[in-house]
């Protein structure tokens, strides 16, 4: 019995467009353990949301997916469609950035719950409703609101409904894609505490996709930094925050404005176009330390400390 819940190796996701394939995820490998929270951090368009969706297999039709994704030892790519559907929502759940648009406006909250539960288990409607009531109550939403429609709830409540709905099947892995980005800071903190509790109580594994390093510092065990479709650094949160190895991680940490910021720092240049990314190290056009080798040779994925990896030719200089 292994404790590895999810294992990705050499994962590639290409969106086929008229301009050519957009290499949103381009060769990513990692493992996730039971009860662990992994933060995936990156800027807009780095492919972090695509990574989340690819784990569930909810990418748009015509997308190319290569590499291996193993969930509890099962190769997700080789599963028949119906098997995969049964895993979605039951074993692996996904919550999204914008809770405003993720619930069907024409159905009540009760309808959403009953549909979800009965898509996975052969239970009566009454039983499904009972379970919905319990899950909602645990999120502080009273039973009297079961028959309400999504537009009658605030953003924070909708996100709690989404969490309750993914919780009701007791999944082993929860993927949260910017779950608090559209929420105000107090509600954001409330939702983060809920996610934290879930992991503690249910031993759920959590992939938290975000652009906010503050959130990662507060709730994650490990952190993966993503740039232009690749992981550039992966390690324990304390390690990465204390001694970031990759120059992009360093720059990202420095540019985050927080309550104790002493100066403003920004990264020159723009993130690359993923149809035609720069060769070798993709960060080299914006990197202050870039040398000739960064333009010609792809940096290796090196373990600098136990469990702390990075892909930079000069990684050891920053230790």
């Amino acid at each position: 019995m292994t404790d590895v819940v999810l294992e990705a190796s050499g994962l590639r996701v290409y969106y086929n467009t008229r301009r050519g394939p957009v290499k949103a995820v381009d060769g990513i490998s990692f493992e996730m353990n039971r009860g662990e929270t992994l933060g995936v951090v990156g800027e807009t368009g780095c492919g972090k949301s695509t990574l989340g969706k690819s784990i569930l297999g909810v990418l748009p039709p015509g997308t190319t997916v290569e590499g291996e994704l193993r969930f509890l030892g099962k190769d997700l790519a080789s599963l028949p469609r119906e098997e995969l559907r049964k895993i979605r929502g039951k074993e692996i759940a996904l919550i999204f950035q914008d809770p405003m648009t993720r619930l069907d406006p024409l159905f009540t909250i009760e309808d959403h719950f009953v549909e979800t539960i009965r898509a996975h288990e052969d239970v009566s409607k009454t039983e499904a409703i009972e379970r919905a009531v319990k899950a909602l109550a645990s999120m502080g939403i009273p039973e009297s609101r079961l028959k309400h429609y999504p537009h009658e709830f605030s953003g924070g409540m909708r996100q709690r409904i989404m969490i309750a709905m993914s919780l009701v099947m007791n999944p082993k892995l929860l993927i949260a894609d910017e779950p608090t980005t559209s929420l105000d800071v107090i509600v954001e903190a409330q939702i983060l505490e809920i996610l934290e509790d879930l992991r503690r109580v249910y031993k759920m594994s959590l992939v938290l996709i975000t652009h906010n390093l503050g959130i990662v510092a507060e709730v994650c065990d490990r952190l993966a930094v993503m740039y232009a479709g690749k992981f550039v650094e992966l390690g324990g949160v304390r390690d990465v925050f204390r001694t970031p190895v990759h120059p992009y991680t360093q720059a990202l940490l420095a540019s985050t404005i927080h309550l104790e910021s002493k100066e403003l720092f920004s990264i020159d240049g723009l993130p690359p176009d993923l149809v035609d990314p720069p060769p070798a190290c993709r960060f080299h056009p914006r990197c202050t330390y870039a040398q000739e080798i960064c333009r010609t040779e792809e940096p290796a994925w090196v373990e600098y400390r136990p469990g702390h990896f990075a892909a930079c030719h000069f990684g050891k200089d920053f230790l």
């Binding site: 107090i186 503050g214 510092a217 925050f241 927080h258």
Partner: peptide, 25 residues
């Protein structure tokens, strides 16, 4: 106070339970 308390701090060594106001605006 509540607002300042809720802002996430990018320092994993300073985690702790927050005292947050209930509910939403």
């Amino acid at each position: 106070r509540a607002l300042l308390e809720a802002v996430p701090v990018p320092d994993p060594t300073r985690r702790g339970r927050k005292v947050l106001p209930r509910g939403e605006v």
